[in-house]
């Protein structure tokens, strides 16, 4: 814990003077258990995200990475309880009503999920899934929404975007679907995107393309990304800051270069050593 506190004080060089767009303070999440007492999956997690920055959240399966993302989105499983504060641009998301949260979700903060083959509805066109929240949040007409959706598809480099709108997810490859999912997350120009394992299951060359795309969007739009991944290789490629989660606790946090080259915590070292044939950059 002392290491984590120390790391927090170590401000990254990037965007020094900017205010945090997302500030997670002491986030504790308990899932309902069979016995009724419940299991605590996150213990006082602290995370900060700057506009235009990518904060990587690393850790092995079950360490609570995805739960952190879901807690920010207010999408925890039924019965789960979250304590602490999740400040998005100064507003505590945990204190919002379901209705108020609906107005933030997809609009100010959105999420890209792990598996692009299951997170798009197989029976609805790409156009439908790219425009329904656009129209809902921005109160714009169908035609305008489709125009914006086509622009978005172009931005994530989907060939012939206008035609792609009337096609269905199964007509696209895995990498393309992930780009569509990213486009859907970006549609309402959110300030924060939570990307949960966005490149897992894609092959390496496509991975690199998706990562470049995310980095580019941050630089171009001032978007902040919370990048959840177990892959430190991915992390080292694009993250500005890195936090390492173990059993629901942040064990190490700081600028990427520092955490990945000179890890202070044994767990981070063991994660790095687990990388096959890779040395930390």
């Amino acid at each position: 814990m002392t290491e984590a506190n120390h790391a927090e004080r170590t401000r990254p060089q990037r965007a020094e003077d900017q205010r945090d767009i997302l500030d997670i303070v002491g986030l504790t999440v308990a899932l309902p258990g069979r016995t009724g007492t419940g299991t605590t999956v996150l213990h006082g997690v602290d995370l900060r995200l700057k506009p235009g920055g990518i904060h990587g959240l690393a850790g092995e399966s079950g360490s609570g990475k995805t739960m952190t993302g879901l807690a920010v989105m207010g999408l925890l499983p039924p019965g789960a309880r979250a304590r602490g504060r999740v400040l998005l641009d100064g507003e505590d998301l945990l204190s919002l009503s379901a209705h108020e949260l609906g107005a933030v979700r997809g609009r100010v903060v959105s999420m890209v999920f792990q598996d692009p083959s299951t997170c798009l509805h197989p029976m609805l066109t790409i156009g439908h899934q790219l425009t329904d929240h656009l129209r809902h949040h921005l109160k714009i007409g169908r035609k305008e929404a489709r125009g914006r959706a086509a622009d978005l598809l172009g931005r994530v480099r989907i060939p012939s975007p206008a035609e792609a709108l009337s096609r269905y997810p199964h007509e696209f490859s895995g990498g393309m679907r992930q780009r569509v999912a990213i486009a859907a997350a970006l549609a309402c120009e959110p300030k924060v995107v939570i990307a949960d394992e966005p490149t897992t299951g894609l092959d390496v060359t496509i991975q690199a393309g998706v990562l470049r795309l995310l980095r580019g969007l941050c630089d171009e739009l001032g978007l902040a990304i919370l990048l959840v991944t177990h892959d430190l290789g991915v992390m080292s490629a694009i993250a500005d800051e890195v936090s390492v989660l173990k059993h629901g606790r942040v064990v190490e946090s700081g600028p990427r270069a520092r955490v990945l080259t000179a890890p202070r915590h044994g767990y981070t070292r063991s994660l790095l050593e687990a990388l096959p044939g890779r040395t930390a950059t």
């Binding site: 107005a103 979700r105 999920f113 299951t118 997170c119 197989p122 929240h133 859907a184």
Partner: peptide, 10 residues
């Protein structure tokens, strides 16, 4: 895909 739809704030 239902979770994704909720994440879009629909």
């Amino acid at each position: 895909y239902v979770r994704s739809a909720r994440a879009k704030g629909l």
